[in-house]
């Protein structure tokens, strides 16, 4: 088994899965119906990406696991998503900032992955990159409107930026498996995308009169299964039925 490729694919798939799961929690509760439909579209894109990536991960693993087996029958410490993806929705500003950070990172990442010599990964990435560019634009539009809206929205955006900023180091962390795949030319190093990320996000925030926090947080761990307190709770909800009925087909 190509262990490092398997791990890299679960990192990608778990990011989409866990963030998609979080966005599902908005369904029926968004600020207007139009925004509700928009957030559902983002979640549907992410769940679709997760299915493709985790199915492929299962094939690489060669143990007969598919996307559902990986999604519903692993424990928190076996999940390889970034810490940012699992953070609770919070208010709409926190959801927007979380998505701005993630989609800006992911659209650049998937653009590079679309040129991967791994044909299967390149094909998945070519589809995903179009979706993620839309996500990044969606989040940027909202960041601008909330940042330059009312006093209240501006304060909430500043708070949300500060809240999520500590997870950005983890977002760009190249763990051993990812670095091994990068050395083989299958994926780009995440660190190589960080400069562009900070430039793009800063430009968006600047238009809204906001700025990225300066403080450097050294937190990492998502890629190696050391998560925040929130992930196992999320999984307990998400996995309840397949765990309670392991023999069942749905």
């Amino acid at each position: 088994m190509d262990h490092s490729l398997f791990r890299a694919l679960t990192q990608l798939g778990d990011d989409s899965l866990i963030l998609g799961q979080r966005l599902c929690e908005w369904c029926g509760h968004a600020p207007t119906i139009e925004v509700d439909l928009g957030l559902s579209n983002l979640a549907l894109d992410l769940i679709g990406q997760a299915t493709l990536l985790l199915d492929y991960a299962g094939e690489v693993e060669g143990g007969g696991r598919d996307a559902d087996a990986l999604a519903f029958h692993r424990n928190a410490e076996q999940f390889a998503n970034c810490l940012l993806a699992e953070q609770p929705n919070g208010d709409f500003a926190r959801t927007v900032v979380r998505h701005l950070f993630f989609a800006t990172y992911a659209s650049a990442l998937y653009e590079a992955l679309a040129a991967s010599p791994d044909a299967r990964l390149a094909e998945i990435a070519a589809k995903a990159v179009k979706e993620l560019r839309y996500h990044a634009d969606f989040a940027a539009d909202w960041a601008e409107r909330l940042g330059d809206g009312t006093e209240e929205s501006r304060a909430r955006m500043a708070e949300a930026l500060d809240w999520h900023w500590r997870f950005v180091n983890d977002l760009f962390h190249d763990d051993r498996d990812w670095a091994a795949c990068a050395a083989r030319g299958l994926v780009p190093l995440r660190q190589s995308l960080r400069y562009g990320f900070e430039r793009d996000v800063s430009a968006i925030l600047e238009r809204a009169g906001l700025a990225l926090p300066r403080k450097v947080w050294p937190i990492v761990g998502g890629r190696s299964g050391q998560h925040s307190e929130h992930l196992s709770v999320l999984l307990a909800t998400m996995q309840v039925l397949p765990r309670a009925h392991p023999e069942a087909v749905w």
Binding site: E34, L37, G38, N41, D141
Partner: peptide, 13 residues
């Protein structure tokens, strides 16, 4: 601008 986005999410699913 947002009207276009909302129209996309509502009427071109």
């Amino acid at each position: 601008h947002m009207a276009l986005r909302h129209a996309r999410d509502t009427y071109t699913r």
